[in-house]
Write a protein that binds this DNA or RNA. Structure first.
Lengths: 111, 111
DNA sequence: GTCCAATGCATAAGATTATTATGTATCTTT
DNA sequence: AAAGATACATAATAATCTTATGCATTGGAC
């Protein structure tokens, strides 16, 4: 079962930043696969969502890129900048608090 | 501190449905105030977001409405339909699971 | 050796759903 | 009398996703 796409909205940037934090440098396709695996197939990041997001993170100076060639195929690696490292902490903290609030609001018992 | 609006996206319908479940019948303004109170001012539902959402829930047959007059002032009460009662269970369960997945993905420790 | 699936990037049209602004009107408090 | 709270609603705009499309390389199956 895949989570309905509305839920991903608003958390995608946070997920991507956190993956970069945990893995140092990653390329786009790798991020989709890693998140798919970690979420047991329940979070599917589409390319149409991912690439614009990565470009936005770069435009905001939260990540830096390096291009590598594997044979003739291009890979664009992304890595957190210093401000990106701060941002991921902020974002994850905010989401953690938000989830606590939602748990209370929705009367959800902890598993 | 108010949660950034991106986080609300995708959870607003669930919040509204759950409030209706917990309180039987409610009118729009009441929902905004109740959520504001329960979230300690951290979730602010704007009218421009709420009313279209309520209308959509009604169009989907998840809620029924009754209009009441308090003096000359109109109040439109919303109440879950039978399919709305099923829907709220689905939505809350999905969100609960999603939050567990996110907690794992983002390496968040339980408070 | 050819074809399909997977890998890898990217953008564009369209849909969804929020923000912000605006409008109307009543009621309460100062 | 004025301001703020109550109460509904819609429209223009913005953000951000889905879906579709495009291009190109690589690996495995047949």
């Amino acid at each position: 079962m895949i989570y309905s796409s509305e839920l991903i909205k608003g958390t995608l940037k946070t997920i991507v930043l956190q993956q970069l934090k945990q893995n140092g440098k990653m390329y786009g396709y790798e991020i989709t696969q890693k998140v798919k695996e970690l979420s047991k197939e329940r979070i599917a990041i589409t390319e149409g969502a991912l690439y614009p997001t990565l470009h936005a993170l770069e435009a905001d100076g939260l990540v830096h890129t390096e291009t590598e060639y594997i044979g003739k195929r291009v890979r664009k690696y992304y890595r957190l900048s210093t401000s990106g490292e701060n941002k991921v902490l902020e974002k994850v903290n905010e989401l953690a608090e938000f989830m606590n609030t939602m748990k209370f609001l929705l009367d959800i018992k902890t598993a």
